Simulated assay, not measured.
Amino acid sequence: AALPAFPSPDFLRECRRGFAKGRKSKDDDSANTTQVVEDIGPVVKSTASSQMEAALDALSRELTKLRTGRASTGMLDHIIVETSGVKMNLNRIALVTIIDSKTLSITPYDSDTIKELEKAIVSSPLGLNPKVDGQRLIAVVPPLTKEHIQAMCKVVAKSSEDVKQSIRRARQKALDTIKKAGYPKDSAKKLEKEIDELTKKFVKSAEDMCKAKEKEISLG
C-alpha cells in the first residue's frame, strides 16, 4: 500500500499566501497565522505518524518470520504455498493452532492441499519437518542451536536499525515540509518539537519490539 504523502507544493504556496495576507493587516495577523498553522500542522504530523506506523508494521511482519524455540501460530504466516498453480500465504489456506509449546497443528481448509502444504513448510527456512496426521499436519518445533540464536539476534539487530532509519527519514521529510511552508519561527519550532517527540516515541516502540524478540529467541 502506498504511504501517505506530505502536503503538495500548491498547498504550501497557499499557506505562504495566507501568511502574507495576514501581515497586510495587523489586526488580522494573529488570526490568519493561527489558522494556517492549524491547517498544515495536523497534516504534517498525521502524515509522519502514518509513515512511521507503516515502518513499525513492516518490522512486526519481519520479526514474526523469525523462528524461536516455541510454537506460535504466526510463525508460518509468511510461508507461500503453491496449489493448483496459484501462490498464497499459508494462513489463507490452512488453520494453524498450537497443541503445546513445541507443537503446531496445520489443518488445510481443503484436504487435497495437504501435500502442497507439507512441501512448502519443509522448503521454508524454519527447519520444520511436519508429519501427516489424518486430515492435518503436525509440526514439532525443534530447539534452537546456539549458532541459530546468534544468527537470529543479528537479523533482529539489522531489522531494528533499518526501521529506525525509515522512521528518521519520515522525520526529515516532515521537517523539510515545515521549512518549505514558510512558517513563522516560533510556530515552526513548536511543530518541529512535536515531530521530534513523535520520532522518539516510534523509535522506542521499535527498540522495545526488537528487545522482546531477542529475549524470546534467547529463551529458546
Results as ranks from 00 to 15, higher is better:
76 L>E: 00
28 D>A: 15
73 T>N: 05
72 S>T: 08
57 D>E: 15
9 P>G: 04
61 R>E: 12
81 V>T: 01
42 P>F: 07
66 L>R: 08
76 L>Q: 07
33 T>K: 10
64 T>A: 14
20 A>Q: 07
48 A>F: 06
15 C>F: 00
11 F>S: 10
49 S>E: 15
78 H>V: 08
24 K>W: 10
48 A>Q: 00
44 V>R: 01
68 T>K: 09
34 T>M: 11
72 S>K: 05
22 G>M: 04
12 L>D: 01
56 L>N: 12
73 T>K: 11
39 D>F: 10
24 K>F: 10
49 S>D: 12
24 K>I: 10
79 I>Y: 06
68 T>D: 00
39 D>M: 11
13 R>F: 10
24 K>M: 13
44 V>E: 00
68 T>I: 05
79 I>Q: 05
49 S>T: 03
54 A>H: 00
13 R>E: 04
28 D>V: 12
61 R>P: 10
29 D>F: 11
27 D>E: 15
27 D>K: 13
35 Q>E: 12
24 K>N: 14
53 E>Q: 14
71 A>C: 01
75 M>S: 03
24 K>S: 13
81 V>P: 03
11 F>N: 04
78 H>F: 10
75 M>D: 05
56 L>R: 09
71 A>P: 05
25 S>L: 06
11 F>Q: 10
26 K>G: 13
53 E>G: 02
81 V>F: 07
46 S>A: 07
36 V>G: 09
55 A>H: 01
10 D>E: 12
48 A>W: 08
44 V>C: 07
58 A>P: 01
27 D>N: 15
58 A>E: 10
32 N>I: 09
14 E>K: 02
49 S>Q: 13
46 S>E: 04
52 M>N: 02
81 V>H: 00
29 D>A: 15
56 L>F: 09
66 L>C: 09
51 Q>V: 04
41 G>D: 13
14 E>S: 05
34 T>H: 12
74 G>Y: 12
79 I>P: 07
57 D>T: 15
15 C>P: 05
77 D>E: 12
41 G>L: 00
39 D>V: 08
10 D>W: 01
16 R>L: 03
45 K>F: 06
38 E>H: 13
60 S>H: 11
61 R>C: 02
28 D>R: 14
31 A>F: 06
47 T>V: 07
76 L>G: 05
9 P>V: 07
55 A>Q: 06
46 S>L: 07
38 E>V: 04
67 R>D: 04
65 K>W: 01
42 P>A: 06
77 D>H: 09
70 R>K: 15
55 A>I: 02
27 D>H: 12
76 L>M: 06
72 S>F: 00
20 A>N: 10
43 V>G: 07
18 G>W: 02
54 A>S: 11
54 A>I: 03
65 K>S: 09
19 F>H: 01
54 A>N: 10
73 T>R: 03
45 K>R: 15
37 V>G: 00
26 K>L: 13
32 N>Y: 04
79 I>N: 05
66 L>I: 14
30 S>V: 14
55 A>E: 01
77 D>M: 08
74 G>K: 13
23 R>W: 06
31 A>P: 07
28 D>Y: 15
41 G>N: 09
29 D>T: 14
21 K>F: 10
72 S>A: 03
35 Q>A: 13
61 R>N: 14
38 E>G: 13
50 S>T: 03
46 S>V: 03
64 T>G: 13
18 G>L: 06
68 T>E: 08
